[in-house]
Nucleic acid binder design. Structure first.
Lengths: 110, 110
DNA sequence: CATGCATATTAGGATATTATAATATTTAAA
DNA sequence: TTTAAATATTATAATATCCTAATATGCATG
């Protein structure tokens, strides 16, 4: 009595390994979205560039806190900064992320 | 010199308030997704019911930890349990969430 | 160069999350 | 009614996150 053919098992295990890797890659991004203030900032940015001041005014959070959130998202490569005189404009780097955020806004609207 | 018409300002502020509320409502759900193990579990469940044992085997995490994650998601109403003999089958409650998870899998696949 | 405005950084305490180990519960079946 | 398997719960230590207050940096303009 030989074993069951090993290929299917192996490839399933490989699928699982792949899935785990994807989860490990995506989870940190979701972690960044998973905060009311940051999600608000990102929803705003999904509609286009904004300065820190705009973001602060809209969100009502302290300047320091906004800046910390933005710095974190910059470190993570989620947003990019562009200076224009005294102001700094932020934008979402990956259009796919913008699209996902807009998609989520729709999904959870009701 | 009268003020600028107040309606637009008011309605923009109301939009912001609405957006904030949505963020406050959605963020906790994202927080639940924002963990490699939980995301893996949910990706699996997005494809259909599974028992704790299946989930444990696939994820390789400890029984206790899986159970804690599932309990948390049950408390949050994200997932539902159904007993069948010794086994307990879990499933995602809201099809919209399943769809979102599958959508994300696609989005971040590349 | 001094002043003001916009933004960033740092330090800190408070709180939340995570994983592990140990124990409990529930069900099936001998 | 033991026993074993599947799942849940609890306690706890390690770590991470969050916010505030204070301070620093960079730029523009008088």
């Amino acid at each position: 009595m030989g074993r069951a053919p090993s290929r299917p098992v192996d490839s399933r295990m490989q699928d699982i390994a792949e899935a785990k890797k994807r989860c490990a890659r995506v989870a940190p991004i979701l972690k960044t979205l998973a905060h009311p203030q940051r999600l608000f900032l990102l929803c705003r940015l999904a509609k286009g560039e904004a300065t820190v001041t705009e973001l602060r005014d809209a969100s009502g959070a302290s300047q320091s806190l906004i800046s910390q959130h933005l710095t974190r998202m910059r470190r993570e490569g989620i947003v990019q900064a562009r200076r224009d005189g005294n102001f700094i404009h932020y934008r979402i780097v990956d259009p796919k992320l913008s699209a996902l955020i807009l998609h989520m806004e729709k999904t959870f609207n009701e």
